[in-house]
Lab assay of single mutants.
Amino acid sequence: MTYKLILNGKTLKGETTTEAVDAATAEKVFKQYANDNGSDGEWTYDDATKTFTVTE
């Protein structure tokens, strides 16, 4: 399945997607991506749209 990440950071904004077997796997990928790019904030997940959002 395709999962989407929306970044609403102070310095990093945008979207990216990943293919993953489940939401937990996608979350690990996205959290590593956000960490690698210095983005940290409040995470939410919408199962209906398969979208993670991180807001700083």
Rank of each mutant, 00 (worst) to 15 (best):
M1E: 13
M1H: 14
M1Q: 14
M1V: 13
M1Y: 14
M1T: 14
T2N: 05
T2V: 13
T2L: 13
T2Y: 07
T2E: 09
T2C: 13
Y3S: 02
Y3W: 05
Y3P: 02
Y3K: 01
Y3M: 02
K4Q: 05
K4W: 10
K4V: 09
K4H: 12
K4E: 03
L5E: 03
L5G: 02
L5F: 05
I6K: 05
I6M: 05
I6C: 07
I6L: 06
I6R: 05
L7S: 04
N8H: 09
N8W: 13
N8V: 14
N8S: 10
N8Y: 12
N8K: 12
N8R: 11
G9H: 06
G9E: 05
G9I: 10
G9S: 09
K10T: 13
K10M: 12
K10G: 11
K10V: 14
K10A: 13
T11Y: 14
T11G: 14
T11P: 06
T11K: 08
L12D: 08
L12C: 15
L12W: 15
L12P: 06
K13N: 09
K13D: 05
K13T: 10
G14T: 14
G14S: 12
G14H: 14
G14I: 15
G14R: 14
G14C: 15
E15C: 13
E15H: 09
E15P: 04
T16W: 15
T16M: 15
T16G: 04
T16S: 06
T16V: 15
T16H: 14
T16F: 15
T16Y: 15
T17Y: 13
T17S: 11
T17K: 07
T18I: 15
T18N: 02
T18S: 04
T18Y: 10
T18A: 07
T18G: 03
T18D: 02
T18H: 06
T18Q: 04
E19F: 15
E19H: 13
E19S: 10
E19G: 04
E19I: 15
E19C: 14
A20M: 02
A20H: 02
A20F: 03
V21K: 13
V21T: 11
V21Y: 11
V21I: 13
V21Q: 11
V21W: 11
D22H: 03
D22P: 00
D22I: 01
A23D: 04
A23T: 08
A23Y: 13
A23V: 13
A23I: 08
A24L: 10
A24I: 10
A24C: 11
A24H: 09
A24E: 12
A24K: 11
T25P: 00
T25A: 14
T25W: 06
T25G: 07
T25R: 06
A26V: 01
A26Y: 00
A26D: 01
A26F: 00
E27A: 09
E27M: 14
E27I: 07
E27Y: 15
K28D: 05
K28L: 12
K28Q: 12
K28G: 06
K28W: 08
K28P: 02
K28I: 10
K28C: 09
K28N: 07
V29R: 07
V29I: 14
V29K: 08
F30M: 01
F30L: 04
K31Y: 05
K31T: 04
Q32P: 01
Q32D: 07
Q32N: 07
Q32E: 10
Q32C: 06
Q32S: 07
Y33L: 06
Y33R: 03
Y33C: 04
A34Q: 03
A34F: 08
A34S: 04
A34T: 08
N35C: 10
N35T: 13
N35E: 14
N35F: 15
N35H: 14
N35P: 03
D36A: 12
D36Y: 09
D36L: 12
D36T: 08
D36W: 09
D36Q: 11
N37A: 13
N37K: 12
N37Q: 14
N37V: 15
G38R: 07
G38N: 11
G38T: 05
G38V: 07
G38A: 07
G38E: 06
S39F: 15
S39A: 15
S39K: 09
S39I: 15
S39N: 11
S39R: 09
S39H: 15
S39L: 15
S39D: 05
S39E: 11
D40A: 12
D40Q: 13
D40T: 14
G41I: 05
G41D: 04
G41E: 03
G41T: 05
E42R: 08
E42I: 14
E42Y: 12
E42F: 12
E42N: 09
E42H: 11
W43L: 04
W43V: 02
W43M: 05
W43H: 00
W43C: 03
T44R: 08
T44A: 11
T44Q: 08
T44E: 10
T44Y: 10
Y45M: 00
Y45G: 00
Y45N: 00
Y45C: 02
Y45P: 00
Y45R: 00
D46I: 03
D46P: 00
D46G: 01
D46V: 04
D46C: 08
D47G: 07
D47L: 06
D47I: 07
D47A: 13
D47V: 08
A48I: 10
A48F: 09
T49C: 04
T49V: 04
T49A: 05
T49I: 05
T49Y: 04
K50Q: 08
K50S: 04
K50G: 04
K50D: 02
T51R: 02
T51A: 03
T51S: 04
F52A: 00
F52N: 00
F52V: 01
F52G: 00
F52P: 00
T53A: 04
T53W: 09
T53P: 00
T53R: 05
T53H: 06
T53N: 04
T53I: 07
V54M: 09
V54Y: 11
V54Q: 03
T55H: 09
T55F: 08
T55C: 06
T55Q: 07
E56Q: 12
E56S: 10
E56V: 11
E56F: 13
